[in-house]
Simulated assay, not measured.
Amino acid sequence: MPTLSATKTRTAMRNAARVSGQSLLILLLTYVVLRLLGMAWSILWPLVVALLLTTLTWPPVRFLRRHGWPPALAASLVTVLFLGLITGIVVLIAVPVSAQSGKLGQGVVDGIQTVRDWASGPPLHITDDQVNSGLNSAIDKVQASVGSIANATLTGVSTVVNGLVTTILALFLMFFFLKDGPRFLPWLSRQLPGRLSTDLPEIAARSWNTLGSFVRSQAFVGLLDAVFIGLGLWITGVPLVLPLAVLTFVTAFIPIVGAVFAGLVAVLIALVFTGWVKALIVLGIILLVQQLEGNVFQPMIQSRGLGLHAAVVLLAVTLGGNLAGIVGSLLAVPVAALIAVVWNYLREQLSDPVPDVVPETDGEPAERVDAQ
């Protein structure tokens, strides 16, 4: 039986120790970078939103600039049109809803009464006294937790204010990105020394293309959801089809929660105006479309546009949601794609040159030579 070589064992241990130490240093550096990013999140979040919005609005700006428009004028026009589009989306949702608010309110009351009538019959047999007792208990709990509700309200108001500030700052940043974006990479190249002046601008350019692919694919997935769910609502005779379809498209940019929220609104409208049967049909349509979107359309489209396998997309969304909630789910896929961009670039730079193959001549096998 062969014995272990002391020399080879020591060499293997030294190599393992060196690799372990290097891995620990890399993990420590990653931790420090993540902590710094978390401390600067109030600045980074508007920047990220502005970059995502810029990927949507850059194509028309590029078209105008190619046709002789000054950069500031092209960026201003597209920014105004974008704000007009957002306003139009809000109007498409708000006006029909407000026009039928009376029917909607009465429908909600009727729906609650229908639920009470159903609960009072078999198999539940819930009486009015039990309902009133439950309501009184709920009121007592609410009164006992006024302080918590006040704190939650203040937190909600603070969140709304922060959201408005983030939105306004993101719009201003989007305008400057549209106006001065093409100057950024040349400027960055001039500021960096040595090889960094080539590497970082190249990675930035590839990352920009990847972000554009992500936003376009997400918009396409949202459009598919809006079309299919809108057709289902129209076929079943549910009112407010256009506002619900627009709401479905807009909320598609917020993974998981956006789809759930839009689906609940559609089911509620169907329940109020058309009854239980069609509400259940609408629920089935929404679940079917969302399953197709989450398991078929979105992974396929994003995997093609971002160069990621469909399984990687699903795992990234799951991990991002567990780590950072809604924001993590929203940013998980583009972050994974950007990591893949950096990794592919590093692999290109660290790989050996691919040898050239000399064609076969006179029946002799081809020879490989190193690329010059």
Rank of each mutant, 00 (worst) to 15 (best):
V165E: 09
V80F: 14
A266E: 00
L242S: 02
T11A: 15
A311S: 09
A279I: 06
S20T: 14
V109M: 03
T318P: 12
R216G: 13
N209V: 05
V277P: 00
V357A: 09
I229K: 10
L350C: 08
V335S: 06
V335W: 00
M300F: 11
I86P: 02
K103C: 00
A252V: 01
V115A: 14
G38Y: 00
D199R: 11
L73I: 03
Q291A: 11
T114P: 02
L271T: 12
V272W: 05
L178T: 04
F214R: 05
V157Q: 05
H67V: 04
L173M: 07
T3P: 05
P365K: 01
G21S: 08
I235V: 09
I281H: 05
L200G: 01
L44P: 03
V341Q: 01
A324L: 03
W187R: 07
L53E: 07
V369T: 10
Q291H: 15
I229A: 12
F253L: 03
L56T: 08
R35Y: 07
P123M: 02
F177S: 10
Q290H: 13
R10Q: 14
D110I: 02
L124Q: 00
V289E: 01
A170N: 06
A12Y: 07
A226W: 11
T55P: 01
V369W: 08
F63A: 05
L211D: 05
Q106T: 07
I93E: 12
I86C: 12
A262H: 04
T210M: 00
V48D: 02
